[in-house]
């Protein structure tokens, strides 16, 4: 298992450049809209990857954290008239508290019990959101107010003047989502390179060995679980404001599975890989529309074949292939390979 980032190139500036240039290649507002959503989901998945790729734990309920953030923002700004940021923070605190309460006893245990616990918790939250229609609007969904920061409203439908330029709200939203993604990646990379990250890598290698040398494994795992849950909650809040309408599906088990699939598909423990996973999985439904009745079958087939032939995920497999193509003898040691 490759534990170190496979990229030798400075990833963050490259990502920033790609995000900056992307709008020039997008044909219309629809493409921009999809790109904005992908950026928000990718940021969520970068957070989830901290848990899966570095913490070695699987969450089958991350969409519930995402959904809690989304609904907290929708309800607090819509029904109770809060402004966006306090609502977002309130949602994130709630999620952090829940993740901590759930994770503390579970993560003391060895093994994959967190996946079962998050599965149970995730579905319970989805059921509550679905049932408590007086608060959440029930299965038919809930309209969400536009993002409001310091009295200024950011709506995809309006136009704004920025440094003397007329800019559409949609483009501004894209810029915000891109910034959030960059920030998410930056924080994630700093975490990975911090003592926490090193301790986690030790845990991933051999938990028992890590414990023997005095690493308080459950403490670090709990910390990373809470952080990744907060990632999801914050992105959920932005996502709700952006799309303007949410249904219980954002918190559903299927959505959780989708998020975890993005991580594995793109490449566990590879921050840029999981972003690629998010891009691919978000685009597939749009790309497969021509198959009509065969869409579902094609989706399953693509997912299956990718994982069979690229079990390490897209980016790690691709970058390995690129490395092999280079004529130079292996100068970089195959670090972390089992």
């Amino acid at each position: 298992m490759a534990l170190r980032l496979p990229e030798r190139v400075p990833g963050l500036p490259v990502l920033a450049l790609v995000l900056l240039l992307l709008p020039l290649f997008l044909g219309n507002e629809f493409h921009l809209d999809i790109a904005t959503q992908i950026a928000l989901i990718a940021a969520t998945v970068v957070g989830l990857n901290l848990l899966v790729g570095y913490g070695g734990q699987v969450s089958l309920g991350h969409a519930a954290f995402f959904g809690m953030g989304a609904y907290a923002s929708a309800i607090l700004t819509g029904t109770y008239g809060w402004t966006s940021i306090p609502a977002l923070v309130c949602g994130a605190l709630l999620v952090a508290l829940l993740a901590w309460t759930l994770g503390r006893p579970i993560l003391r245990l060895k093994g994959h019990y967190l996946s079962m616990a998050t599965l149970g918790m995730g579905i319970i939250i989805a059921i509550v959101i679905n049932n408590e229609g007086w608060l959440t609007g029930g299965p038919d969904g809930l309209a969400v107010e536009p993002l409001t920061v310091m009295g200024a409203e950011l709506s995809i439908f309006d136009h704004y003047s920025l440094l003397g330029l007329e800019v559409s709200g949609a483009l501004l939203w894209y810029g915000l989502a891109a910034l959030l993604l960059l920030l998410a990646v930056w924080i994630a990379q700093n975490l990975v390179d911090s003592p926490i990250g090193r301790a986690l890598r030790a845990v991933h290698g051999s938990e028992v060995a890590a414990r023997v040398v005095g690493v308080d494994t459950s403490h670090y795992k709990l910390l990373i679980f809470v952080i990744s849950a907060v990632y999801a909650s914050v992105m959920g809040s932005f996502y709700a404001h952006y799309t303007g309408f949410i249904t219980p599906q954002v918190a559903s088990f299927e959505h959780s599975i989708e998020l975890i699939t993005m991580v594995v598909l793109g490449g566990m423990a590879s921050t840029y890989g999981v972003i690629l996973g998010a891009v691919l999985l978000m685009l597939l439904p749009q790309l497969l529309t021509d198959f009509q009745d065969y869409e579902m079958m094609m989706f399953g087939l693509i997912l299956m074949l990718t994982m069979i032939f690229m079990p390490k995920g897209l980016l790690p497999t691709l970058s390995e292939a690129v490395r092999r193509l280079r004529p130079r003898p292996a100068s970089a040691p195959a670090s972390g390979q089992e």
Binding site: M1, V52, V58, I257, I260, T261, V264, L265, M268, D293, Y294, E295, M296, M297, M298, F299, G300, L301, I302, L303, M304, L305, M307, I308, P311, K312
Partner: peptide
Amino acid sequence: ARKADVITLIIITIGASIFLRGLAQ
């Protein structure tokens, strides 16, 4: 894919279930 991570194998079974459902449909 037997050399892959368990989680990768799990995702393969998810892909298989979507595939089978699509086929049945």
